[in-house]
Amino acid sequence: MTRYIVKRTFYALVVVWAVATLVFFMLRAVPGDPFQAMLADVDPEAAVALRHKLGLDRPTYIQYLLWFGRLFQGDMGNSIYGSNQAVSQIIREAFPRTIALASLAFIASLVLAISAGIISAVKKHSLLDHIFTLAAFLGLSMPDFWMGILLIIVFAVRLHWLPAIGYVPLSKGFWPWFSHLLMPAIAAGTPFSAIIARMTRSAMLEVLKTDYIKVARAKGLQERTVIFVHALKNALIPVVTVMGIAFALLMSGTVIVENVFAIQGLGRVLIQGILNRDYPVVQGAILVVSVIFVFTNLLVDILYTVIDPRIRYE
């Protein structure tokens, strides 16, 4: 088990390194750098001077080694846009927002999806089951950003229940924080909920057919105990197998949804970096986003071995 974790962690680091390296070299291989776009026509000399100042006129491999070396000191360079803020600073501010949004989305949709899945399985072919099935189908087919827009129209514009956009840190109080994050969390978690709910339903139906459930019922256990203790525990194993894919969807949803709700998280930093052709910001954001993806995936795989003792990795 330890060997497996060490091996997988090493592999995860390799993946992150490979992505960061590929992006670094490809960014420089594609013709036209930001200064060409910004300055070349207006003031070619200033462009040359600026490129020199930022080291962009050096050979690419030297730039790469410098970038990599500084990375270990926590230095990701400075944004070439606006106030030239340090990329590490931008990311340090954005990171907790993305984590808060993703965690809330994860918890909310997990609770919602598993409840819906259980109800669907226990009350198979009931009205609720049909409603949940339809909702799951729609949830997988609608873009998350549109879900965000619909939520804003209903809950912010029409009902005035929740603020439409923005972010308030948790230190300013729970409700302001929560009310700003609730709609983005639902929007980002929609495809995740859809997958988990469908999987929970089918896994529960499988488990409820087994003999040990019949035994549990036969010995007179309360139905509630049968469902939540005996059935659910086993039904969750297949659910964890799709967790990796579902969570990846939730994270890419977070990247998009931050842009709908104007939350200055990693997704928004990345997209704005791309739009501004702000290389250092793009590199930094891609690095951190990749780390999140690769390591949550790793976590899911490890979790899988923990909850299902039948699985053994060498």
């Binding site: 993946v15 490979a18 992505v19 992006v23 490809m26 960014l27 594609v30 036209g32 990846a248 969807l249 994270m251 890419s252 990247v255 990345l270 997209i271 970096g273 791309i274 739009l275 052709r277 793009v282 891609i286 986003v289 990749s290 993806f293 690769v294 995936n297």
Partner: peptide, 22 residues
Amino acid sequence: IDLQWAFPNFIIAVYLVAVFGT
């Protein structure tokens, strides 16, 4: 292929747009 497999397709597409431009 394994490298791409580690990320959802959409995120790979965003990375590539970051590289190629909009």
